[in-house]
Every structure is written in structure tokens, then in C-alpha cells.
């Protein structure tokens, strides 16, 4: 009797592990498929995705600001010169590192903010950095001259 219970228990554990491994495997594969980004107006799409990943819950102006920072970087000698190179520079953006940029589909507002920044709207006056002052960040970043704060982000040159 007792051994039957043990057997049952072991069987359940086994099944759980096997299905667990199976499911994570499936998810990993599904994840890679979703990585495909439409090349149609690619810059707009990428910007909107980054806005969704980095500035979800921020006021609209803060979202335009984040998109503007990316565009300002492409024109600045201190950063790579295309939107894709700036967005995917390893270590540059948290949401690219943790995959948020892929799992969150941008909303209409995110697209709108990205579009307005592409049209040349820059509420940050040429900033190339933004960060959340309530979260820990590298200390060197605080040495940049801060221009303004919008929502939970400070923007700096």
C-alpha cells in the first residue's frame, strides 16, 4: 500500500518534470519565432517597441522624450549612427536585455510618440541619456548635466 503511494508520488513528479522541460522548450522556440519584426517602416516599429519597453506607464511627453533620445543618439558622435545600432547596443537598454522589448507589443500611443519624435519633436532639447532616478544606476551617469525630468525619467546630455 505504502509503496504504491510512493510510486504514485514519484510518477507525478516525473510527469511534472518532463512536461516542464517540454513546455519551456516549446516556449523558447515560440519566443524565437516572435522575434521577427516587420521591415515595413522598420525604424518607426523599433522606436515604438523601445518606447513600449522603456516608457510604459510614463506620460505621453515622456514617451516622446525616450524616442527623441534614441534619435539624438544617432546624430551624436558618441553613439552609433543608426536606430537599430543604438537600440541594440549591448547593455544600453534594460528592456532589450530582459526581452521586454519583444514581449510587449506597442500600443497606439507608443507608435504615436515614436512618430512624433521621428517628425523632429524633441521635448528634451537634444538629450542623449535618460534614467529612472529612483532606481540604482551606474554612478557615472549622474555626472551628466540633467536637462529636465518628465514623469519618472530624468533626461540628460
Amino acid at each position: 500500500m505504502k509503496s504504491k503511494k510512493v510510486l504514485f508520488f514519484i510518477a507525478v513528479v516525473l510527469i511534472t518534470i518532463v512536461t516542464g522541460v517540454f513546455i519551456t522548450h516549446q516556449q523558447l522556440q515560440a519566443g524565437t519565432e516572435r522575434y521577427a519584426v516587420s521591415s515595413w517602416e522598420g525604424d518607426h516599429m523599433l522606436l515604438a517597441r523601445l518606447v513600449a519597453g522603456e516608457a510604459e506607464g510614463e506620460p505621453y511627453l515622456g514617451q516622446v522624450g525616450v524616442a527623441a533620445v534614441i534619435i539624438n543618439r544617432t546624430k551624436n558622435p558618441k553613439f552609433p549612427s543608426t536606430i537599430a545600432d543604438v537600440v541594440f547596443q549591448p547593455g544600453a537598454f534594460e528592456s532589450v536585455g530582459n526581452g521586454l522589448v519583444w514581449s510587449r507589443y506597442p500600443s497606439r500611443t507608443h507608435f504615436e510618440a515614436a512618430r512624433q519624435a521621428l517628425d523632429g519633436w524633441d521635448p528634451t532639447y537634444g538629450c542623449t541619456f535618460f534614467w529612472n532616478p529612483y532606481k540604482p544606476v551606474s554612478s557615472w551617469i549622474w555626472s551628466r548635466p540633467i536637462v529636465t525630468q518628465i514623469g519618472n525619467h530624468v533626461f540628460a546630455k
Binding site: P90, G91, A92
Partner: peptide, 19 residues
Amino acid sequence: RNSLASMPLGNRDMTNIQK
């Protein structure tokens, strides 16, 4: 510049060498 941008230095101050 491209090589620099491909390395995992985005969270550091590498702006001077880029520039």
C-alpha cells in the same frame, strides 16, 4: 565605431572613444 558598438559596453561611459 561599429566594432565598439557591438561590444557589451552600453552601460558604461564609452562615449569618448566613440566620439
